[in-house]
Design a protein around this nucleic acid. Sequence first.
DNA 1: CTGTCAAATAATATCGAAAATATTTGGTGA
DNA 2: TCACCAAATATTTTCGATATTATTTGACAG
Lengths: 253, 253
Amino acid sequence: MKQSNREVAEATGDVGRTMADTTYRRLRNDIVTGRLGAGSKLKLEGLAGIYEVGMSPLREALTRLVGDLLVVSEGQRGFWVAPLSLDELDDISRVRALIETEALNLAIRNGNSSWEAAVRQAFEALTEIESRLPQTTEPLDPEMVEDWERANRAFHAALVSASGSPMLTRLREQLYQQSERYRRVSLNASRRWRNVHDEHAAIFDATMQRNALKAARMTELHMSRTAEEVRRAMQQLAADVASLTERENAGDA
Amino acid sequence: MKQSNREVAEATGDVGRTMADTTYRRLRNDIVTGRLGAGSKLKLEGLAGIYEVGMSPLREALTRLVGDLLVVSEGQRGFWVAPLSLDELDDISRVRALIETEALNLAIRNGNSSWEAAVRQAFEALTEIESRLPQTTEPLDPEMVEDWERANRAFHAALVSASGSPMLTRLREQLYQQSERYRRVSLNASRRWRNVHDEHAAIFDATMQRNALKAARMTELHMSRTAEEVRRAMQQLAADVASLTERENAGDA
DNA sequence: CTGTCAAATAATATCGAAAATATTTGGTGA
DNA sequence: TCACCAAATATTTTCGATATTATTTGACAG
């Protein structure tokens, strides 16, 4: 029995992969990780060269990213990496807490044993990685950061995976990605690691006990603390830039 | 003092209008109003002809609509108007209630007197239109439907305009649009008008009294009732289609 | 008849150049 | 020196043709 191209593609998981789609993912990654800096101009010709792609798929990818709030555009003036701001950090954090607690609440109500197993598995994987993280102020291994990001994302996704609401799931993912982008700023800037394992454990425990109220409170706490950490890092960064600019101006004068 | 082209464009409000943008709005309107039926295939060449536009801006418009959940796409297979379903109706209604009550709560806490004035003005405009609506089962004047849709949208937007949260505002708009699309199905199908003015008045009164809890309850009630109405219309529609199909099959046999 | 395959057809996705628009540069007059 | 303007340049947007992929058709074997 010979397989059609489509069947092969489905089996290997790259069905319908287009240039636009691939470029979208690459750009998204480069923005979330900070390789493309907040606020920087995205010149089309330049990007087309770098990502080896034509205008049409490139613009399609950028248009999708505008929808994700990772890119901003102005007609006839082009595209920029979306700027970061303290106000937006607060806004995102609060709305994300709203969505995430609602989704977790539903998941706790609806989740069956296979959901429980998936949550436990994701938590254990995360625990394993967090236990290996340096307790001291060492330079963070970029690969370890990626591993942790993946595990953290998987844990939070698993928690709410039984919400039964595709719309909440979608909104949660969008907001998670926004948060991740802000979080990575603080990681890159402060080079310090906040111990979050206790917070994850508290959320996990409350969830396994099916204590929705406590799980929501722990989730809110986790998010507000993370936001606070990011806020500090961003303020520090802004202060650094300011003093650097001042010194430069002094040098010029 | 001569104005630059850009300044003129800013004054007239059509700054940066591109083909992609115009086509996006036209397509969006045609989908929300139902002129492009749920689930129908969107063939690129056909659309390019109808909207008199090339491939690039057309695809860009469709890509934006995918982000709005008004269109679905599959790589290498193209675009379809997003289907409608009862499950999705429930999902959207519930999440919209969550977002909208949160935003209204914030607006009631933060709103100043100019917000109050804007809400009152929007409510009065809506009241005026709703008072003119036929009480009997008459054929609905399409122009009046448009007027009502505009006023209804403006009223609900005014209510939450002081939430102070750009993210909530954005999510609310997306969800409002989804709801509108479902609502129009029931309008087109049932040809009957549910009297919603009392519900709007209840929301308005509670809001003006700064009674956040009551305003939220009235909002939830308004939305669940609307969803129920749409649900009935969709079920009726499905039943009609089924009996029609049956008759056709009987004719063939 | 039924499933399979390849050729023919239809549709989508992509490229690269042309058109439209924005921005910068450099010159002129007040 | 400054504001203004137009030419030169840079950039975005759009078009239309080509390449790629999916779908349909129809012939053939089992």
